[in-house]
Design a protein around this nucleic acid. Structure first.
Length: 430
DNA sequence: TCTGGGGTCCTAGGACCC
DNA sequence: TCTGGGGTCCTAGGACCC
């Protein structure tokens, strides 16, 4: 048995926003209620959030827009580009409300949080419904609540609460005597930690639902489901908590910034602009967590979906003599790498930068043969970050990133930034 | 025409050391 | 005749998450 710390049972809740991006759009456009709505990924590429009406039409998350163009027209599906400024701010508001209900909260992703209810003397199911109603009232975002003795079971309860309307958005499995009858209702592919590959493998052996998964022998799980990872997952289904609440996010060990272009890019000049832009973002991110980078990776690739076009992709890595977070220095290095891997004559579709070997700012290893990192540069970066966060991203940026790039993200169906921009507030006509 | 972006953890195997 | 054992570090690859 894999047990953490002690035997005292814990009570986890998972609060998850329903079709989060779609719900954010609906919160400011009530006419979208009860209608099929869809929010797209970057470059208006794939569906990433669907209302239940859109799902009912057979559209799945991840489907490219062009493949469902007919459906969109026929059913007048409301389509939006992703509006991260809006979703990010709405997420913050939801999490603020959730923090009222437990001092111990883990913001797990933009639209879900785990809460710990240990020592709470209340009717858990009712408490879940109060949470649901409060978030709805404060933010206009519908959520579902799942409560159980482990994170994996809370996830599962949440899924059932979403799926079956008679639970009214909250289901408590903590203290439930016959948990097996709930496990039976959930397919293996819907269990947290079981992806496409494991589903195929499990189905092959006739394992179809969470109950069968729970009852598998440990040696089998170890052998076929990634060793200790799978075992932890199954123990969680059995009610033994193996995954604890992480209240403070650990620092990232690597930071990536890469994008597909809105249109293919052939010129080195434009790739340089893109790489400079992505490097700037990545450097901002490492400074935000107080890190310096030791390795700079750059990659470029053509469009692999175009079978009839010549394909090329490559990457290069450079180890910096002294760890740094100084944007111009990292850009210089990234551009050198780009020029090494760039081959003319291809239509590139994606490029990116990764910074890894991140170390905390105060643990920098100095190099005898390099000049000491200057305090002036650090102050400069600090000033730039402050200005950009006070006004808007890229208020100040390097000319190397280009002024009005032709490869910039396509976002043709963008809604307003209702909550973060004075010029885009909701207006109502009476 | 048109197919997202950004992460984590674990394991196996090889190189190398004493 | 007989061919060690135990450890660390690094990398690549596979799986997963939202």
């Amino acid at each position: 048995m894999l047990l953490t710390e002690d035997f005292k049972p814990k009570i986890f809740a998972l609060v998850d926003c329903n079709s989060f991006y779609v719900s954010c759009e609906r919160a400011f456009a009530p006419a979208l209620e009860n209608r099929p709505v869809m929010v797209l990924s970057n470059n208006d590429g794939c569906a990433v959030s669907l209302s239940k009406e859109a799902k009912a039409l057979g559209i799945k998350v991840g489907t490219p827009l062009f493949q469902v163009a007919d459906l969109v027209k026929k059913h007048n599906i409301q389509v939006f580009s992703s509006n991260y400024a809006l979703y990010g701010d709405m997420s913050r508001r939801v999490m603020e409300t959730l923090a009222w209900f437990s001092p111990e909260i883990e913001v797990y992703s933009i639209d879900e949080s785990f809460l710990l209810f240990d020592g709470l003397d209340v009717d858990l199911e009712k408490y879940g419904k109060v949470i649901k109603n409060m978030v709805q009232q404060h933010t206009g975002i519908p959520v579902s609540v799942g409560i159980a003795a482990t994170k994996t079971l809370a996830k599962l309860a949440n899924r059932l609460a979403k799926k079956y309307p008679h639970y009214d958005g909250a289901l408590n499995l903590f203290g439930e005597q016959d948990i097996d009858r709930f496990l039976k209702l959930v397919k293996v592919e819907d269990v947290w930690g079981i992806g496409r590959r494991y589903t195929e493998k499990l189905n092959l052996y006739g394992i179809e639902n969470a109950l069968q998964l729970k009852n598998l022998a440990d040696y089998w799980v170890r052998k076929y489901l990634g060793g200790i990872v799978g075992l932890r997952l199954v123990e969680e289904l059995r009610g033994f908590s193996c995954i604890s609440l992480e209240q403070s996010a650990p620092k990232k060990q690597e930071i990536m910034c890469g994008r597909t272009f809105s249109r293919p890019v052939a010129s080195l000049r434009q790739l340089e602009e893109a790489i400079s832009t992505y490097t700037t973002r990545a450097a901002e991110k490492i400074r935000a967590q107080g890190s310096n980078t030791s390795l700079v990776h750059v990659f470029i690739t053509t469009n692999r979906h175009k079978k009839n076009e010549p394909q090329y992709g490559n990457f290069a890595v450079y180890k910096l003599p002294v760890q740094t977070s100084f944007t111009p220095g990292i850009i210089r290095c990234a551009l050198k790498l780009l020029r090494i891997i760039f081959k003319p004559g291809y239509r590139y579709k994606k490029a990116g930068v990764m910074l890894s070997g991140l170390v905390p700012g105060n643990e920098r290893q100095l190099n005898l043969f390099c000049p000491k990192p200057s305090a002036k540069r650090e102050q400069l970066m600090k000033a730039v970050d402050t200005i950009n966060s006070r006004w808007r991203r890229n208020m100040i940026h390097l000319a190397a990133s280009g002024i009005k790039p032709r490869w910039a993200m396509k976002r043709e169906m963008l809604s307003n930034r209702y909550t973060t921009d004075w010029n885009e507030l909701l207006t109502i006509q009476i």
